[in-house]
Amino acid sequence: MHATIQKPIDEILGYLKPDERVFVVGCGNCAAKCHSGGEPETQEMAERLKRKGIKVAGWSCTDSGVSLCKLSIVKKMLNEEHKKESEQADSFLILACGQGIHTVMDATDGGMVHPGCDTIFGGETVNDDFITEYCSLCGECIVEYTGGLCPVTLCAKGLLNGPCGGAKDGKCEVDRNRDCGWQLIYDRLIALGRLDEMEKYKMPKNNSKWSRPRSLAIGEGEATFKSLSGERKVASHA
C-alpha cells in the first residue's frame, strides 16, 4: 500500500494556468483506501475545480481494488473509455501516488501531469482507518534477526546494532509518544527466546541496493532486479 494524502486545494489551483483544461484521475486501490483519490474523491475534486472556475475535461478512477499504477489499465481507461475527454485535456491531475502519476504520463504519451497528492509512505493497512509504516523498501531485508520488526523503519535513526541512549521509558527521543523501535525489537526477541540475535554484529547496509530508480524485470522462470548494486537474477517459482 502506498499511502497518500491530498494536497491543499490552493496548492493544486496554483499549478493550473488560466484556460488550462484538466482531466482528474483517481486510483481505485491505495488512494481509494486513503480517501485521497478513490472514485468519490476524484468526482468531488472535479466538482471543486469547476466551482473555482477551472475547466474540467472530465474525471475517471480505476475500478475498486484496481491500481492506477498498471499501465495497460490506464491506457484502456484514458485512451479508450475516456478517449474524447482525455484528448481534450491539456493536463491530468492525479489523485494517487507518484507511481500513478508516472503511469498516467506513460499512458498519455508524455501528457502534462500535476500531482494532486503527496505520497507519504508504503504501509500496512492495520484496519480501514489506520495505515502505518513497517518497511522502508531498502532492498535488503534483515527482519530475520530482529523478530520480524524492521529497525531501519521503526528506529528513528535506522540503527542496526541496538538502541541509542535517547530512549526514555521505552519511548523515542524524537517523540515521547512514539515507541523506541529497539525497545519493540528487544521485547519481541525476548518473547521469541531469540535475544541472542541482538548480540550479533550487524554490518552496515548496502545502500547501493537502495539506490533509485530501481527496476524489476519479470521473465519466464526468472526475475531480474536492477539497482546500483548491479543486476540480481532470481528464479521465480511458479
Partner: peptide, 13 residues
Amino acid sequence: KPVYDLDSVQLLK
C-alpha cells in the same frame, strides 16, 4: 536529512 549511514558500533569498527 538524518544520515546515520553507520551506527556507533559500525563507526567503532
